[in-house]
Nucleic acid binder design. Structure first.
Lengths: 352, 352
DNA sequence: GTGAAAGCGCTAACAA
DNA sequence: TTGTTAGCGCTTTCAC
């Protein structure tokens, strides 16, 4: 087994109290003693067990991170930001994923709370209506939400509504009038709903009629034929959309591939705008236009706010921190004649 | 604070021992008592603190996961596999990343060991020569390596040498003769070195001369101009390569973009083969050819082997589990005339 | 400057 | 069946 403070004490010829002090408050112990203790520690390769400390009721220096999934690099990027600061500051991270499932969210939070984490950083499906968060507000460890865009709770996010609004305005500025929004399951994500609101506002402000969002299972490898048909020639006889606003980049990429397989070229036959600004999107051809969220920074900011809350140095009265989004123009958006005509075709490009 | 077993005992009117038994061995306590205790637990919303249990020296049901980075989806995918099984089996995961840095690897392992994790799942830069792993073999918690392809230690991996060999053979079968391998830092990854070995073997077996691997910083946003120049027209006057074997998909994607920006079309002017089989690669255009590793399965298998080792049901004498790799043909590989001529150009494709 | 001892939440002898 | 108690590794009074 691992050596304990007792072993060190015996080896050094002092009491465990002295060893403890030598570790935690070196200046309160005689330099000679200190040296001996340090030798013993080195000799035994002793590392104090956090368990003992944690049990004593101090900080555990454990932080729980609850994310929907790691399959979406958005969250992996956030986690990178968190991990960077956490490990620099000597905290340990306990990770749980929920797959957007409410039961798993509950389970994760309870498990982490039982483990006596000092704090929690989480992205939940629906922040406003989450009873567990109320519970956390009352008793639980402190927490900061990430990417959940709510004014009711401590959170770090972009302004999803505004970001979507800005993005759709850009599409409109490029001459698009029939713009369709694609989403995963709206019910599963407060963010997606806010993005739809922004979409609708931009449309209305331009005198256009927002269409209902088209929900898509983007975990499927293939785009469903019915969806594809809807995009390329809607059943109701209406003109097909000229641009798609996708509520996330992963979705945009899947749609892009589906369209291309159907020989529907992007952006010549269809413009596409994503959301998230995944680094990967820039590697596509053409590079994906996207509304970029600063994911790593969101992770870092969430960490800093959590620590501030733990230390009660959370002076900032506002619960919510809104980070700026940016538009990445990419090359998946074509300008079309404002007469609402078919998009122009690009000339065939010569090979070098 | 959270309620403790004492609070429950007081509330229920029994001793803490009875409460403990009610939780851990319900059949040993009187049904009536059991019911009362359960009521008390529910009333107080009590959840036993793992800390107490952990300190008692039992299993902590904590498993440490040490990964180079989450920026590469390969590791995020492995982690997904691990997390799935871990949470189903009531384990908690403590995550640390190392950025391929030996010091951080050491630090992560020590931190996790100090936290008294039951076991460790890790991907290190160089498994064979890692002194800390020897130390773990002796005293540490048990561990299983993931993606580290070594016969000397418990590990789950593909056969990196063979996989690279197979991939390069495919390139050769397509008529390529000047095949260059691109890698990150060879020194930082035992996997990359094995892949180079496989590359060299395939080349030699076909009577071709392996070239030295070209090392590239693929964290950079841009391909260095010198690298680009080397790919498109090597300085030494030799003919340029017709195919690139990239030691990972991320690298392949960056190179692909760099080439394209330089108006060097893939696969017409250059064929590309990646390694990892990232799902994302299929969304590229053209879809990236790659040697696919079953990342999620590797994570799951590593988990299962770790648990087997913890339970001492590790009957399988072999340390190493080798999972099969597959070739994904994609569309980034063009056939060229075996006369070693320039790759044929594809005819310009008509738009639909 | 140092040591003895209590106690954090829990489990597992051992007693009753 | 239930209770009492020791002890896991550590920090922290309180004496000396």
């Amino acid at each position: 087994m691992n050596p304990t403070i007792k072993d060190v004490a015996a080896h050094a010829g002092f009491s465990i109290a002295t060893v403890s002090r030598a570790i935690n408050a070196p200046h309160t112990v005689n330099p000679v003693t200190l040296e001996k203790v340090r030798e013993a520690i080195a000799a035994l390769n002793f590392r104090p067990s956090p368990l003992g400390r944690q049990l004593r009721g101090e900080r555990t220096r454990l932080v729980g991170v609850v994310l929907p999934t790691l399959a979406n690099p958005v969250f992996a990027e956030c986690l990178q930001g968190i991990d960077e600061l956490a490990s620099a500051q000597g905290y340990r991270l306990m990770l749980m994923t929920t797959q957007y499932d409410a039961d798993r969210e509950r389970h994760a939070i309870e498990t982490l709370r039982a483990q006596r984490v000092d704090g929690l950083i989480l992205t939940v499906a629906d922040a406003d209506t989450h009873p567990l968060l109320d519970e956390l507000d009352r008793n639980g460890p402190r927490y900061v939400l990430m990417h959940n865009d709510t004014v009711r709770r401590p959170s770090v996010s972009v302004d999803n509504r505004l970001a979507a609004y800005d993005g759709v305005r850009m599409l409109i500025a490029h001459g698009h009038r029939r713009i369709l929004m694609l989403a995963g399951t709206l019910a599963a994500s407060d963010r997606a709903r806010l993005r739809y609101t922004g979409y609708a506002q931009a449309m209305e402000q331009a005198g256009l009629t927002p269409m209902p969002a088209l929900e898509i299972d983007f975990n499927a490898d293939e785009l469903a034929p019915s969806v594809l048909a809807h995009l390329t020639s809607p059943a109701n006889g209406a003109a097909r959309p000229t641009a798609l606003f996708c509520s996330n980049d992963l979705l945009a990429m899947v749609v892009m591939r589906g369209l291309r397989r159907a020989r529907f070229e992007v952006p010549d036959n269809m413009s596409i705008l994503g959301f998230d600004g995944l680094a990967m999107g820039e590697l596509l051809s053409p590079p994906l236009a996207s509304i970029c969220t600063p994911n790593r920074e969101i992770g870092c900011a969430a960490w800093e706010r959590l620590i501030a809350r733990l230390d009660d140095t959370y002076a900032d009265a506002s619960l919510t921190l809104t980070l700026p989004h940016t538009l990445r123009e990419g090359a998946t958006i074509a300008a079309i004649a404002s007469s609402d005509a078919e998009p122009r075709k690009r000339s065939v490009q010569a090979l070098p």
